[in-house]
């Protein structure tokens, strides 16, 4: 190479990007051209200064755990958003059809109730007799008019899961294990939340309790906890969003406080340091969430 090096070739050589033949020619030229050799030295010094400036500016600690938690949470939220059914009406006919179908269902249900509530002739007659002799037939509560086998043994039939109206739930305050007020407004056997939420809280309670109680879990146990936690986390986001939509403040609050703990467990490394485990356990204990979950995932009779 007889001519002096152009900037681009020199830079590519310094960056190790020049092809082998070009690099060989550059080396040969630098050996005989003092001017280009000085330029190369100057360029190297400048690049070292630039590297130093970039190093000084670069953050030393990368918040890996926090970034991972944020990314996973955001990805899950997007997944939930994309999997949630869209209620945006595509066209007016679809909407009208939905309204008509709903009206038909409501009319059918009401008709069925009307037919059922009108007494049959023999029942009507018995009712007439009963009205004439009130002392012989003391009034009974409506629900015991057709007592079941268990009812006859002196126990009332308990519906396992009962959907609580939103208005009632809004009056209860959450999340606190010592909240006793909701129990007073619920009848026996009812749960505070709907079936799905109650089941979810029950599972979360089992997970957190077993995680908290395990002194030194094996790798398999931890992997299981992490997997369950991830599953519950996804479900938790869905339920929390439902609760938000239904303006169910207590459920939203409880699920909201559960979410970071599930995230913590799900994000534990495969072989965590004892400090990591202890820190998550401490957060679980501090939040007192296990007690709250127990309260809100149990039918009210068990609270007595």
């Amino acid at each position: 190479m007889r001519h002096c090096l152009d900037e681009e070739t020199l830079q590519a050589y310094l960056d190790g990007e020049a092809p082998a033949d070009v690099a060989g020619a550059v080396i040969a030229h630098l050996a005989v051209c003092a001017r280009c050799a000085a330029r190369a030295r100057e360029a190297e010094r400048a690049m070292a200064a630039i590297d130093g400036a970039i190093d000084d500016e670069s953050p030393i600690d990368i918040p890996t755990a926090r970034l991972r938690a944020r990314v996973e949470s955001a990805v899950m939220e997007r997944l939930v958003e994309s999997s949630a059914p869209s209620f945006a009406p595509r066209n007016i006919f679809w909407r009208a059809g939905l309204i008509a179908a709903s009206a038909l269902v409501v009319a059918g249900v009401m008709g069925w109730f009307v037919l059922r509530s009108s007494p049959a002739p023999e029942r009507r007659q018995a009712a007439h007799v009963a009205q004439e002799t009130p002392a012989a037939n003391p009034p009974r509560p409506q629900q015991s008019s057709a007592p079941s086998a268990t009812g006859q043994r002196g126990k009332t039939h308990r519906p396992r899961f009962v959907k609580k109206p939103v208005s009632d739930l809004a009056q209860t305050s959450l999340p606190g294990p010592d909240v006793a007020a909701p129990a007073a407004v619920l009848s026996e056997g009812e749960t505070f939340f709907d079936f799905e939420t109650t089941r979810h809280l029950e599972k979360a309670q089992v997970l957190l309790r077993s995680f908290e109680n395990a002194s030194s879990p094996s790798a398999e146990e931890l992997a299981y906890d992490k997997r369950v936690s991830k599953e519950l986390l996804l479900r938790n986001i869905l339920l929390r969003r439902d609760a938000e939509g239904a303006e169910n403040a207590p459920a939203k609050s409880l699920l909201g406080s559960l979410e970071p703990l599930l995230l913590d467990i799900a994000n534990l490394p495969a072989r965590p340091a004892s400090g990591d485990l202890a820190s998550v356990k401490r957060r679980i204990r501090k939040s007192e969430i296990v007690a709250a979950l127990q309260v809100y995932s149990t039918p009210t009779t068990s609270l007595d």
Binding site: P59, T64, L67, V71
Partner: peptide, 28 residues
């Protein structure tokens, strides 16, 4: 790749909080 993404985001934004936001969005 999260490290290089974070460092580049930090170099462009010069704000650690903003760099975290950027990393989150990039990986989403």
């Amino acid at each position: 790749h999260h490290r290089v993404v974070y460092r580049y985001a930090y170099a462009l934004t010069r704000d650690p909080g903003l760099a975290e936001d950027v990393v989150q969005e990039v990986f989403v």
